[in-house]
Amino acid sequence: MSAGTLAHAVELRTIASPTLWAVTVAALLLLLLVDLLITRRPHEESMRASVGWSVFYLLLPVLFGFYLWAGHGGGAAVEFFTGFVVEKSLSVDNLFVFMLLLAAFAVPPALARQVLLYGIVGALVLRVVFIWLGAAALQSGTWAFLLFGGILIVTAGKIIKGVLSGGEQEVDISSMRTVRLVRRFVPVTEDYRGSRLVVRDRGRLALTPLALAAVAILATDIVFAVDSVPAVYGVTEDPFLVFATNAFALLGLRALYFVLKGVLTKLRHLNHGLSVILAFIGVKLVLHWAHGIWAWVPEIPTLASLGIIVSVLVVVTVTSLLANRRDRLRAAPARPEPVEEPAGER
């Protein structure tokens, strides 16, 4: 195996014309603008509105997938749906971290949706950057597949190690480097000042805890992007489909957060499933890299990948529900046996 073989460039092909790119980005910006207008006035999200928006944001990728099927064939549609399922699964795990951060910063419920919107916009921007970097890496050589696969396998190992350690997942904001760095150079008020990020306090500009929470979520977005973008490149090499899967998965997170807020803690085996999915895609990428060098090395078809990923998610959901039911039965107080009175005392 020569260095030239490792450096063999990947020719990235895309189904998207400049018009499709422009329409997709314009639609994304329009949806973000609508979300921004909704969150301008601080208020608590109702469950009815959250469910409605969640259904809307789940229908969008379904319709988009059917459009891809009709206009660009079943292969592009299957790649999109597979990438979307992967990204949505990772996004649900991200929501759990967001929930911990909002609790750690004691963000008022009326301001939670605003912080989540900042996190989603930041995540989209970072995804675009990482998608561009990933495309550049692939164009420079097939070694990028090996790199992406290694990142996902290492990430899967870290996740399962954290699961097996048995510790409760929590967020210590005092130990976050970004938070400490901001506090070191910029004063922060002790209390929230409505939806304002910056205020004038004692004659000088200061950040509010709301701004600090937004910074913390943006910092976690960087970690999420490192995992999610290589995962989707393991499904498709089309930068447009990678962008579309990330965009559709992130758009509905704000509403989905309020729908799943009480459910997230019950999906106790979600991290088990995500570690399996990331490890599987990592192996898929390594096999894809090896197939380019040794033709006899098998590759995993995208449709088979979709089936395996969905199966893993179904299994961990079912096992989580069964484990929760088992714990409820164990915690239920035992019913005392009825005591029969002697016949003579009746």
Results as ranks from 00 to 15, higher is better:
178 T>D: 05
194 G>C: 11
233 Y>G: 01
85 V>M: 07
232 V>T: 04
77 A>T: 02
276 V>T: 02
114 Q>V: 11
254 R>K: 08
340 E>F: 14
155 T>K: 01
153 I>Y: 08
17 S>C: 10
138 L>I: 09
309 I>P: 03
260 L>Q: 00
96 F>P: 14
89 S>R: 07
319 T>Y: 01
271 N>S: 12
335 R>M: 13
52 G>E: 03
58 L>R: 01
337 E>P: 02
303 L>E: 14
33 L>P: 02
45 E>F: 08
53 W>G: 02
321 L>W: 13
274 L>F: 05
321 L>V: 13
273 G>Q: 07
171 V>L: 04
258 F>T: 00
240 F>V: 04
170 E>H: 15
272 H>S: 06
23 V>Q: 01
8 H>P: 00
162 G>H: 03
142 T>D: 08
190 E>P: 00
300 I>N: 06
26 A>H: 08
207 L>K: 03
215 V>S: 14
301 P>L: 14
242 V>F: 08
194 G>N: 06
346 R>N: 11
267 L>P: 07
173 I>M: 06
333 P>S: 10
344 G>A: 12
237 E>A: 13
128 V>Y: 00
335 R>K: 15
209 P>S: 01
314 V>A: 15
94 N>F: 10
64 F>Q: 09
175 S>V: 00
2 S>L: 12
59 L>Y: 04
23 V>D: 01
40 R>Y: 08
261 K>M: 13
101 L>N: 02
191 D>F: 04
297 V>I: 15
27 A>E: 07
163 V>I: 07
230 P>Q: 06
297 V>T: 10
281 I>R: 01
112 A>S: 15
290 A>E: 06
194 G>E: 07
228 S>H: 04
174 S>R: 13
345 E>F: 12
82 T>Q: 07
317 T>C: 00
154 V>D: 00
66 F>M: 03
329 L>G: 01
344 G>S: 13
194 G>L: 08
128 V>N: 02
233 Y>P: 05
239 P>C: 09
288 H>R: 15
213 A>Y: 03
102 L>I: 06
77 A>F: 06
279 A>E: 09
128 V>C: 09
194 G>S: 06
247 A>G: 00
107 V>Q: 13
137 A>K: 01
264 L>Y: 03
126 L>Q: 12
237 E>D: 13
218 L>M: 14
237 E>F: 14
316 V>T: 11
207 L>H: 08
100 L>N: 13
294 W>Q: 10
64 F>D: 03
218 L>R: 03
156 A>S: 15
322 L>N: 02
238 D>G: 09
131 I>P: 04
231 A>T: 11
